[in-house]
Design a protein around this nucleic acid. Sequence first.
DNA 1: GGACAAGTGCTTGTATACAAGTGCTGCCCG
DNA 2: CGGGCAGCACTTGTATACAAGCACTTGTCC
Lengths: 240, 240
Amino acid sequence: MGRMADSKRRPTSRRALYHQLRRMVLTLELAPGAAISENELAATLGVSRTPVRESLIMLAQDGLVQIFPKIGSFVSRVDPAQVADAQFLREAVELAALDDLPDELDAGVVTELRENLEHQRGPGLELEEFFALDEAFHQGLLRLSGHANAWTTVAAAKGHLDRARRLGLYEHASSAEFAAQHAEIFEAVLSGDTERARGAMRTHLRAVFSDIERIRAHSPQLFATDSTAVPVRRSVAVWE
Amino acid sequence: MGRMADSKRRPTSRRALYHQLRRMVLTLELAPGAAISENELAATLGVSRTPVRESLIMLAQDGLVQIFPKIGSFVSRVDPAQVADAQFLREAVELAALDDLPDELDAGVVTELRENLEHQRGPGLELEEFFALDEAFHQGLLRLSGHANAWTTVAAAKGHLDRARRLGLYEHASSAEFAAQHAEIFEAVLSGDTERARGAMRTHLRAVFSDIERIRAHSPQLFATDSTAVPVRRSVAVWE
DNA sequence: GGACAAGTGCTTGTATACAAGTGCTGCCCG
DNA sequence: CGGGCAGCACTTGTATACAAGCACTTGTCC
């Protein structure tokens, strides 16, 4: 799945489009369930259908877009099953990484993590900024254990989880609570107390996860119900 | 990542090709590092470049194919870093699943696993048959813990690992040893001894993993060395 | 003889035309 | 008035033509 190296290769419209659309899907700028027209996108962006189409195929391979032949393409609704899968996978990986920490921690990464936590505590933090810091923090912990690349795989699989998290944070933005949990994990890691670190991490990840049912009740149209369901075409009248 | 649902959608050339090529890559029928020509494939299969090209893009998204603009497309060499990542991820997930087993195991799955083990012990087992049984066994264990779908994600990420395993087994085909390890894990699970199950699983997975360096020394051309390296085109003279 | 440049043959990237399926609209006809 | 069916508007799937880059071959000119 989209490994980092992809973005470093020779740029093409397809790859640029893929990264742009992927960002838009993950930030909910493109709402779950929204229809995507290859023709419309191509016309808007001033390119032909080919690169648009190919970038959608890449996103479909990521599970972020669903393509129904002769019917239409849609941003995937947030699939609770996939959210749970990603949660389970993420927890398994991050806990295993904590078990695998070396005796001597990389000083550079430790400093980086400390500065990251400072920023997290900063007042008036934009939501997107906090997300970036959160992502960097967890990735940093994996780097400490020497499994930095495993994060790439996890990141690719947790698209649905991230969108659910954003839905949750847009409602009650409690980043301070999460920042405190991050600090707790970090302290435990520094003190070499693996068990405490594991416990704190588990608590943290499950706190993030526990909000999803509430969000789902609030905005059910963003979630998938029957994963075998197929959409149908509708003609609608609109003003030009 | 190619979720199972994909194969159930309305069939198109692109999806059929994707599954066929994916199988060929994973079974080493298409060797790591081999060049793939869109034109040649299209001509061979009697379709146009479009579905061929799009299926290659899907495989590239899986990390099984690398596409270099204006240069060529290649079956990915087995990347030791990705193999290690997949190994770490797989071990984390399978051990976490063992921690998460319910008190009452699903009787149907238990029966299925028992029959699976019977077949594994069978004499004169084809290599591919053993692989299929192995795959089903591990998936079954995840089903027992209620995280069957997580296997899909792991399966998508372990393409490089599986190819490395095949390279290993083609050389010294010790399926009996692995079958015994499977049985050991299964017994521990049935007896409810989580710690013993975890230990056996860890031993098993690492035994699978430990062969890779030997294989790499034997067939280095199948492995990636510098992941930033870019291939070049060569003109060769051949008889028609 | 040697250097340089056009040419050749391959590659993938993009644009465009057409094929084929779906669901609604509205006309036609009973 | 109502049923059926052709047509329309839209979708994605596939085929094809051309654009652009790379590496080698070959001809040409110095």
